[in-house]
């Protein structure tokens, strides 16, 4: 780890000003930053400690039927929050399944959304890959069992956030504060594909601080779930994760639905194909299976990760049925 100073800003505008300077990195929970520092992937001269900033550490009603989660709220708090557990179950479940108890006590919501990918080429200090200004993505033709099966290229990372798919399933947005003031952007639009810029995963500008996440009121009758498949059960990064939100109206038909997959694409991957198939449908196992096929129809596996396709299909089907309140037989 290189030497750096820790700067504690006065307030959010001050933090923005500091972070706009070159070689300044933001510190919140610090879990991902310390990992990057220890690997030599990040080497800032100054670390801007956001932890003391006011108004960023609460989960509270947003006054319009939704909820506002400060970026400094810890994953443990998200997992245990009664309002989130009750109305936004997928969000609480995603937080509860992230990392370990000891990490959830440190890691923040903002950090979970902004963490860098887990790709072993990206995390290896000796490899100058496309994301680090190099020539190519070594997953292509290399060891790629954990890489993208959807919308990969020119980089084939998968987005590592647990929370992002669940938050996008509820149409969440993020509030960003920078030198030019504040802006609010849909979380779905916040993340960008490597086609747009392989060096980054989102549109956070230099000097911008992710202040809060706002989740609108859920659709009437909405239920949700988040499930993931891992190699190791106690804790692990997901091989595939799925967040589903299903609202059922008259005649128990699907009135509103969102299906978002994690760990399959360079961004949290919302399946408009599955949603279109489900909207207005009478939900049962067969419809859910067809939706799962639709969600993966454009999958282009790499040499070692075709196994993700059937796992993703199974999880999409299960998540839809569970969110729809249908017990799967057997």
């Amino acid at each position: 780890m290189n030497r750096f100073e820790i700067v504690t800003p006065l307030d959010v505008p001050h933090a923005s000003q500091l972070l706009a300077a070159p070689h300044h990195a933001a510190l919140a929970g610090g879990v991902d930053l310390l990992d990057l520092l220890k690997q030599g992937i990040a080497a800032p001269t100054a670390v801007v400690n956001l932890k003391g900033l006011r108004g960023m550490d609460a989960i509270e009603p947003d006054g319009r039927g939704g909820v506002r989660i400060g970026a400094l709220v810890k994953l443990r708090e998200v997992a245990a929050d009664p309002l989130l557990c009750d109305r936004y179950a997928a969000v609480a479940e995603a937080a509860a399944q992230a990392a370990t108890p000891q990490v959830r006590n440190l890691a923040t919501v903002g950090g979970n959304l902004l963490q860098r990918p887990r790709c072993w080429y990206f995390r290896n200090p000796d490899v100058k890959c496309l994301k680090k200004g190099g020539e190519r993505c070594y997953a292509l033709g290399g060891l790629n069992r954990y890489h993208a099966i959807l919308s990969g290229g020119p980089s084939f990372i998968v987005h590592p956030s647990n929370l992002a798919p669940a938050l996008i399933a509820f149409g969440a947005s993020v509030k960003l504060a920078g030198a030019a003031g504040e802006r609010t952007i849909g979380l779905e639009q916040f993340f960008i594909l490597p086609k747009a810029d392989p060096a980054r995963e989102n549109v956070l500008a230099p000097g911008e601080v992710l202040v809060a996440v706002t989740i609108p009121a859920p659709a009437p009758g909405a239920r949700s779930t988040y499930i993931e498949a891992r190699e190791k059960q106690s804790f692990d990064w997901p091989l595939v994760s799925v967040a589903a939100m299903v609202a059922r109206g008259g005649a128990r038909r699907v009135s509103d639905v969102r299906v978002v997959m994690g760990a399959v694409a360079p961004i949290p991957w919302r399946s408009h194909e599955a949603e279109a198939l489900l909207r207005g449908a009478h939900l049962d196992g067969e419809v859910a299976a067809r939706a799962a096929d639709a969600a993966l129809k454009d999958a282009v596996p790499l040499s070692d990760n075709a196994y993700k396709v059937p796992i993703a299909k199974a999880l999409v089907r299960r998540a839809i049925l569970r969110a729809g309140g249908i017990e799967e037989p057997g």
Binding site: G30, T100, P101, N105
Partner: peptide, 27 residues
């Protein structure tokens, strides 16, 4: 592991278990 993955450095921070390797001392 020094990466927050093994739990050998678990201490209590205000009563909550945390991995001491993934937190700066000054913090």
């Amino acid at each position: 592991c020094d990466r927050g993955a093994c739990g050998a450095c678990t201490v209590h921070l205000d009563g909550n278990p945390v991995v001491a390797c993934m937190m700066l001392a000054a913090d």
